[in-house]
Design a binder for these strands. Sequence first.
DNA 1: CCGCGCGTCACCCGAACGGATGATTTTGGC
DNA 2: GCCAAAATCATCCGTTCGGGTGACGCGCGG
Lengths: 148, 148
Amino acid sequence: MRKPVLLYGLLGGVLIVALKLIEYRWLVVEHSLEIYGGLVAVIFAGLGIWLGLKLTRKSETVIVREVEVPAPADFTRDNSKVESLGITPRELEILEFIAAGLSNKEIAERAHVSENTVKTHSSRVFDKLGARRRTQAVQLGKEFRLIP
Amino acid sequence: MRKPVLLYGLLGGVLIVALKLIEYRWLVVEHSLEIYGGLVAVIFAGLGIWLGLKLTRKSETVIVREVEVPAPADFTRDNSKVESLGITPRELEILEFIAAGLSNKEIAERAHVSENTVKTHSSRVFDKLGARRRTQAVQLGKEFRLIP
DNA sequence: CCGCGCGTCACCCGAACGGATGATTTTGGC
DNA sequence: GCCAAAATCATCCGTTCGGGTGACGCGCGG
């Protein structure tokens, strides 16, 4: 921004000098004062506009607009967390069923295992998550990015 | 953008007229041609710059950079759903506690009511949601945008 | 081959939960 | 002030959950 200003200032100076010369030339050929003034006015007005445009053209305002992305369907499982907690795939699967609001019996049906097995898995995953209730397990599971 | 241009055009016209008048006045008092020309030049240059700035101020090159914002803090309760289901504020509050993974006893403590009351509220909200388990109630609550 | 992790299943028991029902008090609007 | 809705508390009962424990089979790597 510094450089262009100086440059334009210089350019303005040069133009003014040029106009001074032109002024004398106009005087020599004896034109009317009104025409002379008008011309100077028009020229400098144009120059000013051009200068103004040039000066502001550079100042593009970058507006960073934070746009809400509609669908944050960008769930990615935190596998490091899964491993650090020692949660097995089967346990994770059961946790997902729990999060879906299913009872142990329903989970048993969908997972093709006995209800007791579901209980074992859920107990284990609760233990690993530090949860005492299935709702808490769901809450923690979401917090830890284990389930969507 | 149309209006300002016209406005500035008009303003420019007015100023030109004013300058014409000034011009004649200057003539009357018989100042030197150089000073007169310089003044006109300076005035019109300033006017031009000002005009140019004004004109381009509006037409700033706006670069909209869409930034992926995580922002899950965009939860707004679907009050119409709340009303259509006939869920009371207290019930909603209990539902939130349930979603937080608290037991009825814990909820009773935090809400300063007896466990029985919590059970009543939860039973009612389950009924209204069509849920049979608290995990399912949480799931449905989130689906219906009743809780974050 | 033996142990280990994982998945599977079972039983018991106490705690928590859910459903049904009834009652009383508070609150807010007309 | 009255009425309806909401909030409160209670009791009973059956179901579900969660914790604890034990056991069996399978696959994989030491």
